[in-house]
Design a binder for these strands. Structure first.
Lengths: 255, 255
DNA sequence: CGAAACTTATTGTGATCACAAATCGCGCGA
DNA sequence: TCGCGCGATTTGTGATCACAATAAGTTTCG
């Protein structure tokens, strides 16, 4: 319960001017948003798990106010959902949602990759290859959060070079909707069975072959989504319900 | 400056239990959000115009708090943008954004219409035809806001029948991004020059022809967007700038 | 023993205030 | 006349409190 009005440092506790001056000078709301976004994208939350403003605020060491803003924002991006009861929980997955996400990803990310191709130089390809190495490394180690992060960076390091912020924004919203679910799938089955379509994408970039790149990205999406999709959604298809934590909706506490 | 803590009615001033009990029993934040959303979609705001929390709050007769939530939400949906200066303004339009919107609309709305087809019965078609009559009426009257609203309802009355909330959510975000810009275009040139692709869409629905419906929607999007796009973006292509209000960014006051 | 009724705790919403940063306005001076 | 400070205003951010609604826990009665 540390007050800040008439004592202590005037700057918020999050994001000090630390070593690598990356996220310095951002609002508390922004810091909270990024923290929650990381958890959603890279396996920090379970789908369907409940979340409370005060709980998150305490876990992050901030007041409920910036958390409220961040949660509102994530709700608008469909990463969190708010029930009629005003209760907030991590977006659960349904078979219908999964199917729509699969289509949207193919349609948007394929286009994004194709548009990026013109702006990808040789040096960019080398950087992307380095990221892909981290994908392989995490896969070999069975490091699920590491794999999710590296895989995210691989895809978006390509997409962002399309300089198409509208499309990228749509895709980011989609990734946040299946992020928690993806982690659950990998957590059960591991990442070892994923065959690598990234190599084909890199090859297509080297050849500057747009349609091949589009096909590789599409294949990567299709295969990855099919893997995690059939694993989970057909498993408990009996009860026809949204795939959530199922274990009495355990609340997603901060670590 | 009317307080509400210890006097007056305990319920907010917005949304009384009026005649048609539609939006009763919603939070103030929700009411503000809907009001702002209407203005954005149907021509109440100019692209690039500035907006302030206190200004909107005063105009809507609520405190700044629910406005703050609504603006945060609309910012996440890319309908409003927040500059580094923390200034909020209605999303301006650029040639690049316009191009991306055109692609995303074709890819997503075509699919949405095709998916909806299976759930569209004869009674639904008659309802859609009635909406299209309002589109024609507004077009004949030169009623730009009325046309925008009827056109929106025409498209989304089809899309919502696909029962694909993820895809519809993406499309709604896109519509809010070009809504203010669309109004500006129609405001200059009027709606008379628009030829009607809705008839073809209705015919395709009557025939239950998915590919024809997809083609009709795609044509409607392409032609409509091309009309408003070439009208504005090529007009002031000289200064290479984002198309905003241009007139010293006049602030969007509430009416 | 079980279920309804009551009490207590939790949670999102809204209001109000303080604050810092940015912007605007005005005047001084060259 | 124009540029440059400097003070006043505006604006988003964050904190704190009150409140109503829901959920959870406890008691009591059949």
């Amino acid at each position: 319960m540390l007050k800040r009005r008439s004592e202590g440092p005037p700057r918020p506790a999050v994001a000090e001017p630390s070593p690598e001056g990356a996220d310095t000078n951002v609002t508390a709301h922004e810091a909270v948003y990024r923290a929650l976004r990381e958890r959603i994208l890279f396996g920090g939350f379970l789908p369907g798990g409940s979340v409370t403003l005060r709980g998150l605020a305490e876990g992050l060491g901030v007041s409920p106010m910036p958390v409220r803003d961040a949660v509102r924002r994530l709700t608008a991006e469909r990463a969190l959902v708010m029930l009629d009861n005003r209760r907030v929980l991590v977006a659960p997955m349904t078979r219908e949602k999964f199917d729509q996400i699969l289509y949207a990803r193919s349609a948007l990310e394929g286009e994004l990759a194709a548009r990026a191709l013109a702006n990808i130089k040789k040096a960019d390809i080398e950087e992307i290859v380095r990221i892909d190495d981290r994908v392989d490394q995490a896969m070999a180690d069975g490091d699920v959060p590491g794999y999710m992060r590296a895989n995210y960076e691989f895809h978006f390091s390509i997409y962002e070079r399309a300089r198409a912020d509208v499309l990228v924004g749509l895709v980011e919203s989609i990734w946040m909707q299946f992020g928690p679910f993806m982690r659950m799938a990998y957590g059960r089955f591991g990442t070892s069975k994923l065959e690598d379509h990234h190599e084909a994408a890199i090859l297509a970039m080297r050849r500057a072959d747009a349609s091949a790149l589009r096909a590789a990205i599409s294949a990567d999406i299709g295969q990855g989504m099919a893997f995690i999709g059939e694993g989970i959604l057909s498993a408990d298809a009996g009860d026809e319900e949204a795939t959530s934590t199922a274990a009495h909706e355990r609340s997603n506490h901060m670590k």
